[in-house]
Design a protein around this nucleic acid. Structure first.
Lengths: 199, 199
DNA sequence: CCCTTTCGCATACCGTCGGTATGTGAAGCA
DNA sequence: TGCTTCACATACCGACGGTATGCGAAAGGG
């Protein structure tokens, strides 16, 4: 069963340290405000290690951080959806769980603000699609095929709903909104989703 | 009637040149990929002029560019809305005009991708609020007061709808979408708006 | 008309940052 | 045991955003 070996173990440990500190710093202060010197110092390594693990440099490291953050959010969304039996309730539960997960401090900055700017909108969208928006599209498609949603192209719906929830998450995570706004937002979101129903 | 004077005229001309070239370059290649040297060279001035007009440097210049872009989009939206008599049709027309205006090549990059990352989400949101989202809020408030929309807090609605349209604009402006997607998106948006109606 | 001030900007310079090329010592392998 | 590979450290570079200072022309007052 393939013992790891001291080389591989050290390698993985270094990579984890870089990812951990990068996620923390990027979330705390934003991509542009974090220097590589500080980053590698916090991880206890040097720039040589960083470029060994992430040949693309700073942006490459950010990409890995973003993928990890999106994976965690996607997992939470999927778990919340699978807890429901009905397809419609799965959609609603997934959307609400997304709002809760994306609002976590720092997460929104990496995932929703710096992500598109650093990697470009197209690549960011592709990653988001693979991580979480994919669930949304599949849920909508299933509901259309089941006749619960009026027949229509799902792609525009995915973008509209995804954008609505992304912006809502940024707002809810900011100081401009209070705790009562979360309930009001989910209520409004439910209404918008209900508008799609075929019955 | 206050003749301008050669000093003031030159000053305004230089400022315009900087804004014009900055808007072009930021739209073409993005904030981070444009260097100040290239920027001032394209405008026919030097860095001294840039920091004379925009003490905050690159970010300050970007802020001015963003304000101008948002102003133009806001004007188009307001004009399209005022062309309608009914309050509900004003809302729909304004939303659709926003999609058309924000999809203009380069506009979306400055306004929706680099904007939040460069200035931070909070400041970007405040500028967007003052320029275009304000119209949305006022329209929704009027419709609520007129009883055309079910009584509810409008702030969450503004964020959900604004986010939905922003993301939709980015998608429609990208190569990932075709011309037929615009019609499908506006149709889906109309449905979502209809869901708010009280009747 | 001249002197002074102010203004609009150009020039020269600096610190920092992301990125790269090369060195090195330990782990792996025959 | 000796050669190879790998994971990383060190040293260095060019470019960039930003700043301090200089300068010439326009404005303003006597």
């Amino acid at each position: 069963m393939e013992e790891p070996g001291v080389r591989a173990r050290q390698r993985e440990q270094t990579r984890r340290a870089l990812l951990r500190e990068a996620e923390r710093l990027f979330a705390e202060r934003g991509y542009a405000a974090v220097g590589l010197a500080e980053l590698v110092s916090a991880a206890g390594v040097t720039k040589g290690a960083l470029y060994h693990h992430f040949p693309g440099g700073k942006a490459d490291l950010f990409r890995a951080v973003l993928a990890e953050v999106q994976r965690q959010v996607g997992e939470r969304v999927a778990a919340a959806a699978e807890a429901k039996a009905d397809a419609w309730e799965q959609l609603v539960a997934g959307c609400e769980e997304f709002l809760a997960a994306a609002t976590a401090p720092g997460t929104e900055r990496v995932m929703l603000v710096d992500g598109p700017a650093v990697l470009g909108w197209a690549e960011w969208r592709a990653m988001d699609e693979a991580a979480s928006a994919r669930h949304l599209g599949e849920a909508l498609t299933a509901l259309v095929e089941a006749g619960r949603i009026a027949p229509q192209p799902v792609a525009p719906l995915v973008h509209l709903l995804s954008g609505a929830m992304n912006e809502a998450a940024l707002w809810l995570a900011s100081a401009a909104s209070g705790p009562e706004d979360l309930a009001a937002t989910t209520a409004a979101l439910r209404r918008m989703l209900r508008a799609l129903r075929a019955d």
